[in-house]
Design a protein around this nucleic acid. Sequence first.
DNA 1: CGCAACCATTTACGCGTGTAAACATAAGTT
DNA 2: AACTTATGTTTACACGCGTAAATGGTTGCG
Lengths: 123, 123
Amino acid sequence: MAISEAEAVVMDVLWGRAPRTAEEILAEVGPSQNWQEGTVKSLLNRLLKKNAVHAERDGRRYLYTPLLLREQYVQQESKGLLDRLFGGRVAPLVAHFSEQRKLSEKDIAELRKLLAELDNEQH
Amino acid sequence: MAISEAEAVVMDVLWGRAPRTAEEILAEVGPSQNWQEGTVKSLLNRLLKKNAVHAERDGRRYLYTPLLLREQYVQQESKGLLDRLFGGRVAPLVAHFSEQRKLSEKDIAELRKLLAELDNEQH
DNA sequence: CGCAACCATTTACGCGTGTAAACATAAGTT
DNA sequence: AACTTATGTTTACACGCGTAAATGGTTGCG
């Protein structure tokens, strides 16, 4: 089962640093998200059921560690979008942003560099 | 309210050609999706409520036309992903696909061309 | 030992979604 | 006029999600 958006927020905290306690997660995420403790606990439990995190007892509390890797998650999400909207091809996606003028100077510079590197690997 | 994935499938048909009757939509989408008539009707009604499509009576049936443009939808979806996963920047997204070896030769060629064009516009 | 504090687990509830059955209505046919 | 057919509208239902209250267990303190 896919992990939901709220769950991904919790994962983000764990991807930043792990292991973490529920309390720490709440501290980091509570302000921006306005979540109560119970909310975070529920999300953690759902993530446990989905095998996206692991919990290890540490005295009276648990330490949570991500099992699902950020790379995997990003991969799934981006591939989904790419397939649904751009026929699975990257260039049309970039073209889309280009038309939308959403390419910054920095983006362009980095893309150039990226292509140059691909060129080098080539032979 | 955002339009859901199943709803987007219906929109896709309408983006391909419009106006269309419910029957035509079902004919195009039923085989791949295994949907019954009622399902398509429900989705159309929800899209109506969301003002994503317009329905015009034509005798005993309706002709459905998209109001939400494909460009708008693609824009929302891609921006959402970009912001959530890549800090709103395009280059990291492409880098991600590059690392994943998801750039085809064709992609690379097109990206090169795109950058060249951007270069021309520049001055 | 009994109670308070601290965490976690369970339960809850309204909402959107995917899917469809049931119902309504109008028009064509006999 | 009654019956059938074609279409759309309403209602339904299970499930995941966002959010949190209620409940339960364990540990430290008086």
